[in-house]
Amino acid sequence: MPKKDPPVYAEIAAHYRQLIADGELAPGNAMPSMKDVCAKFGVTITTANRAFRILKTEGLTLVKPGVGTVVAKRPTVAATAAARLDRLTRTGKAYAPKEKSIKHTAALRSCADPDIAEQLDIEPHDEIVLRTRVFVVDGQPTAVAISCIHPRALAAVPELLDQKPFGRFWQEIYTERTGRTITRSPERRGARLASDSELAALEVDVPPDVPVPVLVLVNTFQDEDGPIEVWEDVYAPGLWQVAAE
């Protein structure tokens, strides 16, 4: 059965969702009037209203008395890793509005996680490059990002062991220097209990030994020689995730 195109109201919502994610419409900015939306897309007021209801339901907009619909602050919304990478490719922007990354670490570590070892096609306890950082939106930690990188990547990108951020995605540098294209498998979602270090990074204050379930999104990358990176995002409890920006 052929895939149906999304309804017009969904396309309108996606258009403004994109503008908000890219910072073209920043928190506090007024959204276009219903009249302007109808004229721009050639739709009825009913269709325009339906699109705006989607954005409001997603927490991206709110109605401000005396002003109308405005872009909401979004400390409770966090993009997935795949969405961040798509935004970087599309716009060149490493961060969403009011977003930054902190607490960067980089080191060679023994891979004690058998699942990660299997995904990287290495033996358990072989060394990997482990890079971590915490994403923060408007001052609130949203996700701990953990990159487990095959050590063969160091031959082309020795900077992987630098503590400071790259300023661009390291895989782009790898491709420039090796000519090898890296592809990404579909993003996978799971859940587990957060570690003490993850809770501390996310500033989740709970008594010792209290289990805290968290959402984990996993992206795996490979080139012609096999797996090269497993990227896990561990999200703070109570956040909405958006798969597209």
Score class of each variant (00 low, 15 high):
Y235K: 05
A14P: 06
E187S: 15
F135R: 15
D113W: 12
D225Q: 07
L239T: 11
P141Q: 14
A13G: 11
R17Y: 05
L193E: 14
R133K: 15
T69V: 02
V43S: 06
K35V: 14
K93N: 14
L239R: 07
L19Q: 09
I12L: 07
A191F: 08
Y174I: 06
I173D: 13
L215S: 11
L161I: 00
D196L: 09
A51T: 06
S147Q: 09
P165K: 03
A145I: 15
A72E: 02
T220R: 10
V210T: 08
D121N: 13
V206Y: 01
A244W: 04
G238N: 08
G179N: 10
R180T: 11
T175V: 14
E198V: 04
T61F: 06
D223L: 00
A156E: 05
H150M: 07
V242W: 04
I45C: 08
V43M: 07
L108E: 12
P65R: 00
S110W: 06
R152Y: 06
L25G: 04
P158I: 08
Y95C: 01
R152V: 03
E58M: 04
K40W: 00
R184D: 01
K4Y: 05
A81E: 08
A21K: 00
D36L: 13
R109W: 08
K35G: 12
Y9R: 13
H15D: 11
L199K: 06
S185M: 05
A21W: 00
P227D: 03
Y9A: 10
A79C: 12
A112L: 12
V204T: 05
R180N: 12
I173E: 15
K64T: 04
I182G: 07
Q241T: 14
T91N: 02
D126G: 10
K100E: 12
P211V: 04
A51K: 01
Q241R: 09
L161G: 02
G139T: 12
F221M: 09
A83P: 09
V206K: 06
A26V: 07
G167V: 08
